[in-house]
Each structure stands twice: as C-alpha cells, then as structure tokens.
Simulated scan of single mutants.
Amino acid sequence: MTYSIVIVDDHLLIAKAIATIVEGFRDFEVLYEAENGQALTARFAQPRNIPDIVLLDITMPLMDGFETASWLKEHHPEVLVMALSVQDDEDALIRMIKHGARGYLHKNVHPTELEKALYTLVNKGMYFPDWATSKVFRTIAEPRDETRLTHKLSQREIEFLQFAATELTYKEIGEKMFCSPRTVESYRDSLFEKLGLKTRVGLVMYAVKNGLVKL
C-alpha cells in the first residue's frame, strides 16, 4: 500500500528537499506542497487533494501549525499529522499534541529516522522520538489531572493503561490481556470518558503522573 503525503512549510527549499527524500521511500508519495495552513485548507476542498499524512511545519504566516493541526483535527481527523520543528520546544510539543498531532520530529533528522517515523505513524497511529516522549511524560497536559483519582479505575483498565504506555498496537494489547480488540477499545473508550481525555498520549501521561507506569 502507498501512503500519500502533503508537506506544509513556508520555506520552499525545505519543502522541496523533504519531498525529494520522501519520494525515495518505497511506500510513500508526495501529493503536493503547501506554503501554509491557509493554502492547505483551500486545497482540501477537492477530495483528491486529501492525503493520508500531513508533514506540518509549526511556524508559518497566515495560518500556523497549531491552527492548521486544530483545523485538521476538527474537519479531517482521519489525516495523520506529523509536526516538524527546528527545535525541541517543550511548549510547542505539548501544544501540537493538544491540537491533534500524532507525531513530532526535528527538521534535521536523518532520512532513515523520517522513514521509520512515517512507518510507525501509519502502523501504530503515532510517533514520538525519545527526547519528545520524555518531555511529554514530564508534562501535565491538562490541569484537571490533579483532581483525577486512580481508584475510579478497574484493575483491567489499569492493566490496559500500562500496556498503552508501550509501543504495542491495540490488537497486540488484546493478545496480552487475553481479550478481543473490541474489548480493548471498550477499555480505552471508558478511560477517555472517565478521565476527560481524547488520545492515547493523554492516557499515557495520566498513567505516568499517577505512578501507574514507571519510566
């Protein structure tokens, strides 16, 4: 299967360079480049222009990465967003996660890491390098976390949380817990509702903060 990618970056040379690299990967193709979020949303008016993945720069004129990720989350949640940045900015990382990004990468990563990140993104739904993961785990995504109590959770939900903090897919978690993928999804959805969260990253942050997962 070939996955389509759109690159959103206001620096034309950088966008073209990334496109050239991605075109060298076996299972990925670049549909087009856009100079900012405003240009991207305009292109999305045509269904043929909607990709599987958006590689999204953060700092752009007219409509930046935060606004664009938020728009994609609301209007096209099926599109996987990988944020691109020139620095390991903790605030930017957390803000992009809150706005729906499923991954975060430095622009200066080696092509092999970019390829690995793209495969992990499409196969497991997210990709965060080690430096980003450690920052996410140390940060409280929602101030309301202080009022959340782990005793609201069943033992099976806690077990699921511990597996969710690994790189296992939901199917693989079901195998570890000796239950069906549908049951695993029910644990996930129950936790989303109880904890007021919307993403797997949010669940992991909650688990770490409450001592359910040790780094």
Rank of each mutant, 00 (worst) to 15 (best):
T41A: 15
A17W: 04
T199P: 07
R26F: 07
K194L: 14
M177Y: 08
L191I: 04
W71C: 11
A101E: 09
R144V: 11
W131R: 08
T20L: 12
I94E: 03
E175H: 07
M126R: 07
S85V: 05
R182K: 15
E23V: 08
L195A: 03
R26K: 13
F44Q: 03
M63V: 06
D57A: 04
H11T: 07
L105P: 00
K16C: 14
V122Y: 08
T120V: 13
T20S: 12
P181M: 08
Y206S: 05
L195M: 07
L197P: 05
A92Q: 14
K209V: 08
R200K: 13
Y170R: 08
M82A: 06
Y32G: 01
Y119M: 14
K194D: 13
K171I: 14
A117H: 04
S4E: 10
I173W: 00
Y119F: 05
K209N: 10
Q162V: 09
C179R: 08
D88G: 07
T112W: 12
R26V: 10
M82E: 00
L55P: 03
L118G: 01
I21E: 12
Y127F: 13
Y206G: 01
L203G: 00
L56I: 06
L215P: 15
E172C: 03
G24R: 07
E159I: 05
V122C: 07
E67L: 09
L203P: 01
A42N: 12
R102K: 14
R188P: 05
H106S: 15
L93S: 07
Q155L: 13
F25M: 04
V201E: 09
V22D: 00
F163M: 09
V81A: 04
L215K: 13
Y206T: 03
Q38E: 15
L93I: 02
G211C: 03
L191P: 02
L93Q: 05
S134A: 07
G174D: 11
D89L: 08
F28P: 00
D57Y: 04
A83M: 12
E159Y: 03
L168A: 02
K198I: 12
F66L: 15
G65Y: 03
V6W: 01
P77C: 04
A207F: 08
F66R: 11
H76T: 08
L72C: 06
I97T: 05
M96H: 02
L168E: 05
E185S: 10
K176S: 10
A207E: 06
P51E: 01
H151S: 12
H11F: 11
I5C: 09
L80A: 05
K214M: 15
P47H: 00
V30K: 00
G37N: 00
R43I: 06
A45E: 15
H110A: 15
T166L: 04
A164T: 04
L31T: 03
K171W: 07
L62K: 12
L31R: 02
V86W: 11
K209E: 12
